[in-house]
Amino acid sequence: MPVMTIREAVSQALWEEMERDPNVIILGEEVGMWGGTYAVTKGFYDHFGAERVRDTPIAEGVIVGAAVGAAMNGLKPVAEIMTINFAFLAMDQIVNHAAKIHSMFGGQFEVPVVIRTTSGGGKQLGATHSQTPDVIFAHFPGLKVVAPATPADAKGLLKSAIRGRDPVLFIEHSTMYQERGEVPADKDFLLPIGKSDVKRPGNDVTIVTYSKMVQITMRAVKQLEAEGIDCEVIDLRSLRPLDLGPVYASFKKTNRAVIVEEGWRSYGVGAEVAARIYEECFDYLDAPIQRVAQKEVPLPYSADLEKSAIPGPADVIAAVKAVV
């Protein structure tokens, strides 16, 4: 199987879907001549042309709004919002329009739009450019929120998002584009949206996570293994739909859970998943569920300070040791 980076996997998925369906267009800031600020669409403008790879003004509201309108009217737009921090400028289009138009008009319109964006801190970009507010978007029924952790998942889930009939916020992690992994070469490699993935089976603790924290968790799990603690790791892959079946199955085996996310703890993924485990698996509970999350401060610029606020393997290890 070919090995490639997440950048290459996302790029390949986009390229193949544009080759496959002439209604797929890309629009966003610097997606064309520049080749994408994360170089995901490098070469697209020359190959597919300015009609299908559309550079836009720096105006997030109309980028998403135009994509939603074009999706209603038969195109399959992939809008790129440079970072999720700028998605707040398009918040109304994402949550009041993309997420609601199908339902609110009684099902007459479909909005098959994909909004690609990047999330996550760790690049010394300061408080407004470093957030991981993924969960905010997952609050809204009608929207799908996908956040892959591997190159294969990035390709398979993005292709499903583009071919699908519903609006999808597709969140890539800004520091993971160079991560490598095996990716099926199949042009029809599709992964269903809304299926968690058991990354590692284990018997002692269930760790639920997604996106970059999968990688952080796997590092922690390796160290814990050396100490004789056997963790099961589940990658949610999408925050809406949220597939907790594998989580409940795992918890009924381990009776202990840790939830790891990069965003802030309050009202977060950990809060949601823990509540659901308490509701569904109360009789299986052997220890209070632990949450690993970002320190509740706006992320600072200074490198060591920033690093200290974002969860790392040591935080995961401490949480696991608290439940076993």
Binding site: I25, V62, V68, G69, A70, N73, Q93, H97
Partner: peptide
């Protein structure tokens, strides 16, 4: 439609028109 967030359908209109022009 009928859109109830003031001004929000103006971007939608650009998308509708873009699809036809495309």
């Amino acid at each position: 439609g009928g859109h109830a967030i003031v001004g929000a359908h103006i971007p939608l209109a650009t998308g509708l028109a873009l699809a036809n022009k495309f």
